[in-house]
Amino acid sequence: MSTVKVDRRVDHSHHFESMQQEHESGKQGTWLFMATEVMMFGALFTAYFLYRGKYFESWVEGGALLDWKLGALNTVVLLFSSFTMALAVRETQLGHNRKALKYVIFTTVCAFAFLVVKYFEYTGKIHHGLFPSEGMWSYDAQTPQLRLFMVVYFIMTGLHGIHILIGIALMFWLMKRLKNEEFSKDYYTAVEGVGLYWHIVDLIWIYLFPLMYLM
């Protein structure tokens, strides 16, 4: 392999013909990855609606057990983080690495805030015996399938939480690269890609919040 390190700000990788081609490829790859995320969560949404149709009363009982205020708070936090992420992408596109860095830090703080709120929600549920595993479930449910609601709740929000964690890791990667001023007006694929990822994580929560907390 020719291991000459290319300066990505002004040059493309060896197997592309232009920086534009490389950028478009990266962007399309990220969108396709988003499609896999939609399909993966799509299966879980299917399970949610199937069981909701079957055990409607339990879904009502379960929804009432969740604290909609905390859920709403987290929704606001994530929406705001999407806004700061969008600003970070914009600043990188203009070539302002420093300003973008600031916005990525804002976004990361929001991500941590989301997880802190989630931590209090989870521990509260576990404390009340609502964690649906053998030995941890002790809640006195009013309807027969409340446990199944909690299964769906923990799996869907848990998988979403894992995505937030991955997002935080990606943000730290961006921070390092932004600090080194590795991006330019012509090269900002990584920031845009993480931005897209962060928006889909946000978007999934936009569906999870009303389905879990409000219905």
Binding site: L50, K54, S133, V151, V152, F154, I155
Partner: peptide, 17 residues
Amino acid sequence: VFGIGIFDPNLGGDPVL
């Protein structure tokens, strides 16, 4: 691992899913 029962009919789950 957790015995959640999402496909277990004893716990309301649906194996056909």
